[in-house]
Each structure stands twice: as structure tokens, then as C-alpha cells.
Amino acid sequence: MEMEGGEKSRSRLCSICNQRRPALKRPKTLQQICRECFYVVFEEEIHRVIVDNNLFKPGERIAIGASGGKDSTVLAYVMSELNRRHNYGLDLFLLSVDEGITGYRDDSLETVKRNELQYGLPLKVVSYKDLYGWTMDEIVKMIGLKNNCTFCGVFRRQALDRGAALLKVDKLATGHNADDIAETVLLNILRGDIARLSRCTSIITGEDGPIPRCKPFKYTYEKEIVIYPLSYTPLILLSFSFLFGFDGTLPFIY
């Protein structure tokens, strides 16, 4: 704006601080902002979502569903940061599910274990073997590769609930982000699933059930979740090993 037109967009400044060079185009607002402002607004927006929606009450025990993937890793980090910074007074836990798929969870469980050390969050791993007496590998052996996603999805949902019950938590926080929710909305329209369509955008679900779930990342875009760890110091990067170094990622091709 300070220059003529947009041709010199490289020389534009961050639209928040107006001082530094922008490093990111926000997918939500198309604002161009610098690294420093990015992580301030990123965390602050999540804080606002938590406060405005009364997601948590002081003294609550909260389990964070931790898969070792990007969303839950960033969620665990941001939650523990905000809890400290804004005195939420929350008792935070990490909760992981081990499906027993060879080569699939082994690495990501390593990541989660590192997170446990890094943020000082206690970790509870629930295995399919413990819960159901079967590992996913054994299920696949029985029913073949075709429909096992259905099993895994249903089992995983239950496993998180059972694990949360074991930990006696008040609420379960999951890493579902804005992109996930948009995808779910479309899928439910295409399927004609009116019941799910009407509840899939709620930030808190299952309030009538034993353990309510909430999505602090409801308004957070996937792109920013992936970029967020990159804008941090190398020390913290270590714990976001799904991006670099250790291979903590769930291979996206599985």
C-alpha cells in the first residue's frame, strides 16, 4: 500500500507490526504477517477461543488426545503454554492410543514420549491389546485390508474414551482443526447425514455423555498449524520432530 500497487509485494511490511518483513500469508485473512507477529496471533486466537467458549474450568483434568501427528503435537504444546501463561489452572495429560500396527505407531509413540518429557505432561498409552484383546495387525489378518478403517475408527474413538475414563479426566481435547471441520461439513452434506451435520461444528460435543470432547483448534487453519513450529527457536523445534530429524510422522500414505 505504501508502494505503488502490488508489484513490489516483496517490500511490503507485516500488516500487524508494520515493521518487519512478512513471512506468511494467513489463509484465514490473507494478511501478510511476520514470524514474530504470527506466533503471537496464533496463540492469542486459540486463547480467545478457549475463553470465549468456556472450554475449560479451573481445576479440571484435561486429556489431550495425542497421536504424535502435527495437530495433536502442536495442541499439546500450545495448551501447556497457555495453561501456564494465562493461569487456566488445568491439570493436563497426554492420551495416546496404540493400535498395534507394526511400523505405524512405533515412531509416533516415540514422539509422544518425547513430548511427555518436554512439556512435563503425564502420558497414558492405551493399547488395543489391552482394551479389546486384539491388535490392529491381528484384525487386518482376520478381515483383510478392505474395511479395516471402519474398525480402526470405531475402536479408536472408544479407546480414547476408555483411556480418558481410566485417567478420570473431566474433558478430552482433540486436535481437530478448521480444515478437518470444513471437510466433515462437506462429507455430511454429500452423505445426507443431517444429524451429524447439525452437530459436527460444535466446539464441545458429548456434554451429556461421560466425557465431553472439545476442539480448541476449531478456528485454526491447518497451514498455520504446520507452519507454527517452524517459526520457533531450534530448541523447541526438537519436540516437533514430525517435521524434522526424527521421523515421528504418521506416513500419509498408509
Binding site: 512478512p22 502435527k70 504446520v226 517452524l230 504418521l250
Partner: peptide, 25 residues
């Protein structure tokens, strides 16, 4: 997206990072 995507000009010693967002959550 800030430098013009496909039209971005590269210089010697530049670092280019590609990350898939499609890995699990």
C-alpha cells in the same frame, strides 16, 4: 505465496522447504 509462488526467483544458497500438511493429526 508472498514471493509469487511459481514465479519466485531463486538465488544461490537459497533454502527451499516442502512440507506436506497431509500427514495424520
Amino acid at each position: 505465496e508472498l514471493s509469487g509462488q511459481l514465479d519466485t526467483t531463486l538465488e544461490n544458497k537459497d533454502v527451499v522447504v516442502f512440507i506436506s500438511t497431509l500427514h495424520g493429526g
